[in-house]
Computed example of a mutant assay.
Amino acid sequence: MTQVSTETHALTREELLALPASIDIVTAGRAFGVGRTTAYALARTGEFPCQVIRAGRAYRAITADLLRVLHISSENGDGAGPCTSDAA
């Protein structure tokens, strides 16, 4: 039987990079600093900050998109992505 974690701390860069291909909506919410209720509400309304899929009654966040939105990759050491401006 799997033990359910009740930790609510924010995820570190290392924890984010170690995530599987898709994660539950509560874990994804932790990456964005939002709680369980807010994460589900955003997923239901299609406003979650990264791609979310519906798997039966559950919501799953796509880890690659979560990392893209947070500008985190294994190549950048500090987790900060490039600042871009569309202004010409």
Rank of each mutant, 00 (worst) to 15 (best):
M1G: 00
T2Y: 15
Q3C: 01
Q3K: 00
V4G: 02
S5H: 00
T6A: 11
E7G: 13
H9Q: 04
H9L: 02
A10S: 13
L11Y: 05
L11M: 06
L11F: 08
L11W: 09
T12I: 08
T12D: 10
R13L: 13
R13I: 14
E14G: 01
E15D: 01
E15Q: 12
E15M: 04
E15C: 03
E15V: 03
L16E: 15
L17Y: 10
L17C: 10
A18R: 05
L19G: 06
A21N: 11
A21G: 09
D24Y: 03
D24A: 01
D24H: 05
I25N: 04
T27W: 04
T27E: 11
T27G: 05
A28K: 08
G29A: 01
G29V: 06
G29R: 00
F32S: 09
F32W: 12
G33K: 02
V34G: 02
G35Y: 05
G35M: 10
R36I: 11
R36T: 13
T37G: 10
T38V: 14
T38A: 13
Y40P: 01
Y40K: 00
Y40C: 01
Y40D: 08
A41G: 04
R44F: 11
T45L: 03
G46M: 09
E47Y: 10
F48K: 08
F48A: 10
P49L: 12
C50H: 02
C50Y: 00
V52T: 04
R54N: 08
A55I: 15
A55T: 15
G56Y: 03
G56W: 02
G56M: 04
A58N: 15
A58E: 15
Y59C: 13
R60E: 12
R60P: 07
A61H: 03
I62M: 00
I62Y: 02
I62Q: 03
I62S: 00
T63C: 01
T63P: 03
A64L: 02
D65R: 05
D65V: 09
L66Y: 14
R68S: 12
V69D: 03
V69R: 10
L70T: 09
H71Y: 11
H71F: 14
I72Y: 00
S73T: 15
S73F: 08
S74Q: 08
S74N: 07
S74T: 11
E75F: 08
N76Y: 06
G77H: 04
G77L: 13
D78F: 07
G79I: 09
A80T: 14
